[in-house]
Amino acid sequence: MNTYYLHDGNESSGPFGLEELKTKKITSTTPVWCQGMVDWKNAGEVPELRSLLMIVPPPIKVSAPIPEVEKIKKNHLIFGIKRSYFYLASTLLLLIIGTFIFNIVRENRRADLELKNRITEKDNQQYLIQQKEIEQQKKLLAEQEQMEAERIAREKKETITNRLLEIQNTLSDNNNNLEIFKKKLIDASDFKFFRTAEEKREEINLIHNQIQSLKKDIEKLEQENNQLKLELERVH
């Protein structure tokens, strides 16, 4: 069985056995020490001594009695204000807060609506500008296409006209040559001196072939001339 030393704050006493400690009226905060302890402990920290501890009840807090009139008054007050005034003030405060919140919400909605209207108006203006630009581009493109078509038509007309002039000149030359070869054919048929019958026949065949060639050329040129005239009318 362990024996314990006690300390009263100034000096230590002991050692005491468990039976002796019962008479010392130790409490849970009484410093104790026994062999094997590193340092002093409170008696409440030693399991062996807990059954010996004297229980000290806490002091009683005595409050002054509240008069009945004061109790009644306090029952009719909230935060030191009469109930009716408190409820009225609370109602007014709630109305003010509600009105303030309502105004904030309404202003926010109005601001959002104005922002949406501005964005919509801006989008509409941009759309109109884009449409106007598209129309201008279409008009410019149409004008360019018309100018290009007119240029092509002029060039084609000029080409056809030049070709018709060439054909007319060639036809005129061919017709003149045809008359010349016809005359040569008559002269070759009538000429009888200084040549044999074979030479005469070869000369006549040669002139005849030249006449046929000229006729074919004249026919082709006349066909081309007629086609070009029709195409020239379509170009107009």
Rank of each mutant, 00 (worst) to 15 (best):
Q125H: 11
Y127H: 12
L128T: 09
P65D: 13
L53V: 00
I119P: 04
K132W: 05
V69K: 13
R109H: 07
I101H: 03
I104C: 00
E148R: 07
D112Q: 08
K71P: 05
T91G: 14
Q126L: 15
L93C: 12
T120K: 15
F79I: 06
Q146F: 02
N117E: 15
Y127W: 09
S84E: 15
T99C: 14
Q136A: 10
Y87I: 15
A89I: 05
R83K: 15
E107T: 08
G80D: 14
V46K: 09
T99M: 10
F102G: 12
E133M: 09
E68G: 03
I55N: 03
I119F: 09
A43W: 00
K122M: 14
K74M: 14
P47N: 00
K116V: 10
K138F: 07
L113T: 10
K41I: 01
R106A: 13
P65K: 14
R109C: 04
E148I: 06
E48S: 01
R109N: 13
I134T: 06
G44A: 00
Q137V: 04
L53M: 01
Q136V: 08
T99I: 11
N108H: 06
V56S: 02
I81P: 03
M54E: 14
K61W: 07
Y87C: 10
Q137Y: 06
H76M: 14
E135L: 13
A142Q: 10
E107V: 03
F100K: 02
L115R: 14
N117R: 15
N103W: 06
Q130E: 14
A89G: 05
I97F: 13
L113Y: 06
S84F: 10
N75W: 03
V62G: 03
I78R: 06
L94G: 10
L53R: 03
F86R: 03
I78T: 09
I119W: 07
E107N: 02
E45P: 07
H76Q: 13
V46R: 07
N108R: 14
Q126E: 15
F102P: 03
L53H: 00
R83N: 11
K82R: 15
K74F: 11
L88W: 12
K139Y: 11
I104T: 02
A89C: 10
L115M: 07
L93A: 11
G98I: 09
P59C: 05
L140H: 06
P65V: 11
I119E: 15
I104Y: 04
D123W: 10
T120D: 15
I134F: 08
L128G: 05
R106K: 11
S90K: 04
L77C: 01
E145T: 06
V62K: 13
F79E: 15
Q137W: 06
R50M: 03
L53T: 00
E45S: 05
N103T: 06
Y127F: 12
E68D: 13
Q130S: 12
A142C: 02
I66Y: 01
Q136L: 13
